[in-house]
Design a protein around this nucleic acid. Sequence first.
DNA 1: CTGTTAGCGCATTCAT
DNA 2: ATGAATGCGCTAACAG
Lengths: 333, 333
Amino acid sequence: MKRPTIHDIAREAGVAKSTVSFALNGQPGVSEATRRRIQAVAGELGWQPSRAARALSAAQAEVVGLVLARPTGLLEVEPFFMRLIAGVEAALGADDIGLLLQVVGDDPQRELEVYRRWWGQRRVDGVLVVDVRANDQRLPVLAELGLPCVLVSSEVPGSGLTSVGLDTKAAMVAAVAHLRALGHTRIARVTGNADFQETVLRDRAFAEAAGPDAVIVAADYSGERGAVATRDLLLRGQPPTAIVYDNDVMAVSAVGVAAELGLDVPGDLSIVAWDDSPLCRLPHPALTAIRRDIAGYGAAAAAALLRVIDGERVPDVVVGAPELVVRGSTGPA
Amino acid sequence: MKRPTIHDIAREAGVAKSTVSFALNGQPGVSEATRRRIQAVAGELGWQPSRAARALSAAQAEVVGLVLARPTGLLEVEPFFMRLIAGVEAALGADDIGLLLQVVGDDPQRELEVYRRWWGQRRVDGVLVVDVRANDQRLPVLAELGLPCVLVSSEVPGSGLTSVGLDTKAAMVAAVAHLRALGHTRIARVTGNADFQETVLRDRAFAEAAGPDAVIVAADYSGERGAVATRDLLLRGQPPTAIVYDNDVMAVSAVGVAAELGLDVPGDLSIVAWDDSPLCRLPHPALTAIRRDIAGYGAAAAAALLRVIDGERVPDVVVGAPELVVRGSTGPA
DNA sequence: CTGTTAGCGCATTCAT
DNA sequence: ATGAATGCGCTAACAG
């Protein structure tokens, strides 16, 4: 049997097509009796609206896009994105909006290509932008295209684009305060990509919390670079007794580096991971970590995007209260 | 300025709409001269086809779907999926087919719901099915719906559905042979979800390679369960001297367990991970691992799906030659 | 309250 | 080689 259309329902129920449309979309102007009958017929025929027809008619794809533009070597180990996506879909699901995903290599040009195609073809109604840089070349293009979007990032002043961020400062304060309370004074930090907006803000928060002379070493979220940075720090004349990492992956690799150098964790070195994930429980000792509600974050970003798509001017948002989960990797100095 | 349509191009170029359509789609029946002119006009107007209109007309969404139905705690740490997705899109990109992603909790009913909606609304032309179980309740539903699909899994006899798999047996043989060559005789295996089709095949391959009395302990791909299984094995009277894990996450957690029990890796215990990923380099020592071309796998599955969507009957496929990457976690018995 | 009608943007069949 | 006409399935403005 063929896919039933509104026409079929109309014929079956003995009414006009538009009546069916109204009845099904909850529009006024249909008697309760006919509405019920129509719904019954639609139900037993197993009717579902054709998305393509609806999209064409409404000039709305009912799909939002997400481009992931990191080298896959980095993407795949970052639990962050899957969690974010789960949250995004939680918010999208209610309205039955789809999520179109595209992973491109670490290539901003290709990413912009994707946006141009998606928007040019009206494949999406808007996009979520991640890994926002401090001076992001994508942002002006996005603004010029007029493609509705939300920056999944701490606020980016002057971009004119809505951002949804997490409370970076509070998180950093929690981490550093914990270490301070344990008696640590030489606290260092290993960062993700230095040009990310988020990294800049964390640098600032760290300097405020740990003092302006606290050491910061730049890495890129990868285990390799994290390990290199860790070795660099630990082999200095005055090595830190505690290190805060910008993600879970680098923190896990630090446990390996410590073992390699014959250092005890947390005896000789305390380690704090940023973003708690199952990864943090893999090493021994398990990692103390900053926990943020990433799924909730994704949901908030998606909700904001839907509003932007609806034409609202949405102010920047900061969601969620970070929390420090203390495990075995941190101890007295 | 508004989005240009074929109509605009026709007017601008002084021809009929259908001529434009033909010219742009490379159909015969248009003189080379007019075709060029039309293409030029389309180019300067920045025309792009409306996906919704095309979809409606062609009755094709030009989108394929992927539902991820594991508890997010498991999903997010599995590098496998991101890699698979990257590969899938590599194959889809050429035809400019989109990938619609949906992550649902570990809930087969919700997953089927998604398939019903997607197919009912023609949001997708087909789907890729992962985490196929030995006796998967989704399969008959999929077949009955008539939703084109490809099982990203070792072959599932009798399902009537095309599967694309990796060479499980060769991989297992490589792993076990390596350990045998190092002198190991008590080799054990910690598995992913016991009801996955893939797990069943690996069990069989392991039994063949390591002997029918080789110990197999079931887990579920998670670090926790992997750690429990590892402890169970190591605290037996005759503990194994080598363990093969069904993924990277469990293998990494095993390093932590060994440390906790005061065992040296690889001195007291050799560890082999399945699916090499950056995760395998995080612990110290780094993990020996089975490496398979997951991105290529995804690409092959996507390519097969496109053929299925085109109505071809595609036979089961086995792709890729697995390879054992030897690192520090395996050594002489 | 119900039925008629005209698009949405593209593909395509059929005349010319 | 080109143009006019029609349909895809739905929405919505309009007239009855």
